[in-house]
C-alpha cells in the first residue's frame, strides 16, 4: 500500500483528501504542525507528500526545500498544493515534483497522486 503524507494546517482539507485517497486504497497520514513534519516523515516514510504552501511557521516552500536537500528524503515525491495562480513557478523554485491548484476536483487529485506514485515504481 502506497503511503501519502498530507502536510496542511486546514483540518477540512486534511479530512477531505484523507477520505478521497483512503477510498482509493492509499495509506494516508497527516500533520498540521511544522515542528512535527520531519519526525512524521522519519517515522511514516511516505512515498508522496501533499504539501500546502501556506503552512504556518516555516511555510511549505521551506519544508519542501529541506526535504529536497536531504539525501534520505530526496526521492519522496513532493506535490505543492496552493490557491496561488503562480503555483507552478513556486513549485519549480523550491524543487517540488509537482503541484495541485485549489480548488481541485476529486478526480484531478486522484489522477495527480496516481501519476506521481507510479513514477516511483
Amino acid at each position: 500500500m502506497k503511503k501519502v503524507l498530507i502536510i496542511d494546517d486546514d483540518a477540512g482539507i486534511i479530512d477531505v483528501i484523507t477520505i478521497i485517497l483512503e477510498s482509493d486504497g492509499y495509506d494516508v497520514r497527516s500533520v498540521d504542525d511544522d515542528s512535527k513534519v520531519f519526525e512524521t516523515i522519519e517515522e511514516f516514510e511516505p512515498d508522496l507528500i501533499l504539501l500546502d504552501i501556506w503552512m504556518p511557521g516555516m511555510g511549505g516552500k521551506e519544508i519542501c526545500k529541506r526535504i529536497k536537500n536531504n539525501d534520505r528524503y530526496r526521492n519522496i515525491k513532493t506535490i505543492m498544493v496552493s490557491a496561488s495562480v503562480d503555483i507552478e513557478k513556486v513549485a519549480d523554485d523550491c524543487g517540488a515534483d509537482g503541484c495541485l491548484e485549489k480548488p481541485f476536483e476529486m478526480d484531478g487529485l486522484l489522477a495527480t497522486v496516481k501519476g506521481y506514485i507510479e513514477e516511483t515504481r
Binding site: G12, V16, A83, S84, P103, F104, M106
Partner: peptide, 12 residues
C-alpha cells in the same frame, strides 16, 4: 488561499 481552501473542501 482563504477563499479557495474552504471552497476546495466543500467541492471535494
Amino acid at each position: 488561499h482563504e477563499l479557495k481552501t474552504p471552497l476546495t473542501t466543500i467541492k471535494a
